[in-house]
């Protein structure tokens, strides 16, 4: 049995906190008018997602989520926001504004409803619990998936070089 009283309740509360962090971060990332707040929303959303990864028995991916998304992706976007001033333009008196808003809301609601229904009612196969520990992940990365591992490092290298090449060409023009 549980070594600690009401540990399931405590875990459920922590899980709900992670879910709420995820939802609030996602909404903040999408709905805020200033882009720096939007990046903060993305960081909060990644924090909640890392919590969910922890609940999915993968603390390694939780740490990687925090390290890559908050530490690399959000910081890079913050740099881009500093270089360009991309604040969301003020509400222009365009005729199709409400049309686009309602269209986006309708598409999002349809997708959420459909995929949520599919997720709750789908005939998903029963669970099979194996060993998903960090040791097994490391062994798989260096044996079964070693080619993909090398390819992803190559893709990152090419991305770095390509980013340098693209961002540098505009500098010579007036």
């Amino acid at each position: 049995m549980n070594p600690f009283p009401a540990s399931n309740l405590i875990l459920a509360v922590a899980f709900v906190v992670c879910l709420a962090t995820l939802a609030c971060g996602a909404l903040l990332a999408v709905l805020s008018a200033r882009l720096i707040r939007s990046v903060c929303g993305l960081a909060i959303c990644s924090l909640g997602l890392a919590g969910l990864y922890y609940f999915l028995h993968s603390p390694f991916l939780a740490l990687m989520e925090i390290l890559i998304y908050i530490g690399a992706v959000c910081v890079t976007i913050v740099f881009a926001i500093m270089l360009a001033e991309p604040d969301e333009p003020a509400a222009d008196p365009l005729a199709g504004k409400w049309l686009w808003g309602s269209l986006g809301l309708g598409v999002a609601a349809t997708i959420f409803g459909g995929m949520g229904w599919l997720g709750t009612h789908g005939p998903w196969p029963a669970s099979t619990v194996g060993d998903g520990s960090l040791k097994a992940v490391g062994r798989a990365l260096l044996t079964t998936y070693s080619l993909a591992f090398e390819l992803i490092s190559l893709a990152l290298l090419v991305a770095i070089l390509g980013a340098l090449a693209i961002a540098r060409t505009g500098r010579t023009k007036p």
Partner: peptide, 29 residues
Amino acid sequence: DVYLVAGAFLLAVGIYGLIRRRTLIGMLI
């Protein structure tokens, strides 16, 4: 199903933002 609904919520919010945002960085987020 809880995780699947959370994933569907993230996807829906992302697509809504992709439609509504009017700057490139917002669409990237």
